[in-house]
Design a binder for these strands. Structure first.
Lengths: 209, 209
DNA sequence: TGATAAACGGAACAATGTTCCGTATTTGGT
DNA sequence: ACCAAATACGGAACATTGTTCCGTTTATCA
């Protein structure tokens, strides 16, 4: 009933058999990681419709292994998406520690742009009607919104950003901005970054109000 | 070397052989029609991803027959889409003859709403990246815009609609309106029709200006 | 009516998602 | 260090499609 966290230790009740559970095997963990990494690469190169076999091959495992971890193609897509969301969101506090607030905000927004651009392929899959993807928008928001909220608050406190911008609005705005100006455009990403700088300047400018 | 166009008619020069070409066989025409009709039904029930075999079965033909007419799944989708566009656009002049201008306009817009709602499934396919669908938006517009323009002009001339509404804008507006309020909603289509009536009233009201 | 081009049906092929199971590896206790 | 059991692995086999091929049937037209 309660969801197990990654390592489920043996049940220590007195009466039970010698060993009720084991830890997840090391190779299993390694393979799960390899699969997600491989899927990320293959999805980027071939698209989200890439054959499962190809992903398994790239990860250096058999399809059986892939399917034990990700019972369905969709599960793999979801896995990659979440992992990327996690990775991107996790950079927010790191950047916040390593740079002054305004700089951290600016850097993270650029990083977010990259996320959006590389996930454009996945984005269309999201609207494909497969119920496996239903939870992703919420996951997206629940990870990114707090991350950006913190960055914004810190920057605002330091007088490096205005106070009246909502994190979610900003996520959407930049999301739209980045998803229309693809990375394959005439000046690839340059246009997107220029527009992003514009928005960031806008954030700073508002400070004086 | 030179690519043949679809129907290479007999060369009608005086000297040639008895019969260079024949007319398209009657059953072929019948089957093409049956296939489009079947596809329309199956797409509506199962979705645009319905198996080709199922469509062939519904049409009462073999898959071979289907593939001679529509060399690719996409071709079939395109065929159904165009046929529906044609059918809907063709009703405009008919309604214009059968009713006073304002009534004709109102009726056609309702018909257009139905088109949009039933084609929602196809709409997502349009954005799937398949280049076979690239021509459809233009086809959509080049058929509907003139049809609605005529209806609007007639209604405006009769004092039953304002003059300052662009046909394309109206198509888009109602398109958005109908595609968000699906037919499966709580009061199925009723909400959409109510909003449509609102817009039509708006068209009429502007008359007084 | 009969010769013939056109069209037909569906078996066969290819690509892909998914399942199954015999084999190999890891773990935990001794 | 060793062993037995649990766990995980690989990839063949299966199921479901899209697509092609070809022997058979049928409509056309002289």
């Amino acid at each position: 009933m309660a969801k197990e966290t990654t390592t489920e230790k043996k049940v220590a009740t007195a009466t039970n058999a010698p060993h009720a559970t084991r830890t997840t095997r090391a190779d299993a963990l390694r393979n799960e990681d390899a699969l997600l990494e491989a899927a990320k690469v293959v999805f980027a190169n071939v698209g989200v419709d890439a054959p499962v076999r190809e992903i398994a091959a790239q990860a250096g495992v058999g399809v059986g292994t892939l399917y034990r971890r990700f019972p369905t193609r969709s599960d793999l897509v979801v896995g990659v998406f979440k992992r990327e969301v996690d990775a991107c969101a996790a950079e927010a506090p790191i950047l916040a520690n390593a740079h002054p607030p305004g700089e951290a905000l600016s850097r993270w927004l650029k990083r977010y742009c990259q996320f959006i651009v590389t996930k454009k392929g996945l984005a269309s899959a999201l609207h494909s009607g497969d119920p496996a993807f239903d939870a992703l928008p919420a996951y997206f928001r629940s990870n990114f919104e707090p991350a950006l909220t913190d960055l914004l608050a810190a920057a605002a406190k330091a007088g490096e950003a205005r106070h009246d911008v909502d994190a979610y609005d900003l996520l959407r705005a930049i999301g739209n901005l980045a998803s229309t100006g693809g990375k394959d455009g005439p000046d690839g990403m340059e246009h997107t970054y220029r527009m992003l700088d514009l928005m960031i300047d806008g954030l700073r400018f508002g400070t004086s109000r």
